[in-house]
Amino acid sequence: MTQAIGPVRTCIGCRTRTLPSELLRVVAVDGSVVPDVRRRLPGRGAWLHFDLECLRNAERRRAFSRALRVQGSLDVALLREHLEQQHRNTTSGQPRGQQETRKQVDPS
């Protein structure tokens, strides 16, 4: 017997099925693919890992226009910039959204 763990989405880059919390939703806006970080933008969405390799695979396979059901090619510059910034934030040594905490030492 399988237990339902919630909705499952497929990354359009690597075609791996996983939870939406591990993927970034993207939508087409005026001929560009934009990240939908809050998952509230209107329109058809597609899902992508926070990985530049998945972005390259999706571009190579022309998956964005097919998944978003848009005619012609789409500009992915905003999405690429967003993923590169996420990559810089996670590789800088500090986890995202966390401040450095210091222990206070009692001088006595």
Rank of each mutant, 00 (worst) to 15 (best):
A63N: 08
V26H: 00
S73A: 14
N89D: 15
G97R: 06
E84H: 04
P95E: 10
Q98F: 12
G6Q: 02
N57F: 09
I12Y: 05
A4N: 14
A4S: 11
G97P: 06
T16Y: 02
S92F: 01
F50I: 04
D106I: 10
E22M: 14
T101A: 14
I5T: 14
L19R: 10
I12V: 14
R17F: 00
T18D: 15
P7T: 10
R80V: 00
R25M: 05
S65F: 04
R88F: 07
M1L: 10
A67H: 04
N57V: 00
G97L: 06
E53H: 12
T91M: 12
P95S: 11
R66D: 07
R60T: 10
G45P: 03
L24M: 11
P20E: 08
T91W: 05
R66C: 01
Q85T: 13
S65T: 11
I5V: 10
T91P: 03
C14Y: 05
Q3H: 11
R62W: 02
G13C: 08
P20D: 07
G45E: 01
G72I: 09
Q3D: 12
E22Y: 13
R56D: 15
I12K: 03
E59Y: 02
F50K: 11
I5H: 12
R15F: 00
T101P: 01
Q94K: 10
A58Q: 02
S92A: 14
A77S: 15
E22W: 07
R61N: 15
A63P: 09
P20M: 09
Q94C: 00
R88D: 13
R88M: 08
P107I: 05
P7H: 07
R96M: 13
L79C: 03
V105P: 00
G43N: 04
E22S: 15
R88E: 13
R15G: 01
S65K: 12
L23C: 05
V76M: 02
R9A: 04
T10L: 05
Q94W: 06
D30S: 15
V105Y: 06
L23R: 01
E100L: 14
T18K: 11
V26T: 03
M1S: 15
P95R: 13
V26Y: 01
E81D: 13
F64C: 07
A46T: 00
E100D: 08
D106Q: 11
L52M: 10
G31E: 05
P7C: 00
Q85M: 07
T2L: 13
R88W: 06
C11R: 00
L24C: 08
C54F: 02
R39A: 09
T2I: 09
T101I: 13
M1Y: 07
G43R: 03
V34D: 03
L68A: 03
C54N: 05
E53A: 15
L23Q: 03
K103Q: 14
V70Y: 06
A4W: 10
Q104P: 00
P42E: 12
L78H: 12
A4D: 14
F50S: 09
Q104H: 08
S73G: 15
D106S: 09
V8I: 14
R25I: 03
S32H: 13
P20F: 07
L78T: 12
T90K: 11
G31T: 06
E59S: 05
R9C: 04
H49I: 01
Q85G: 02
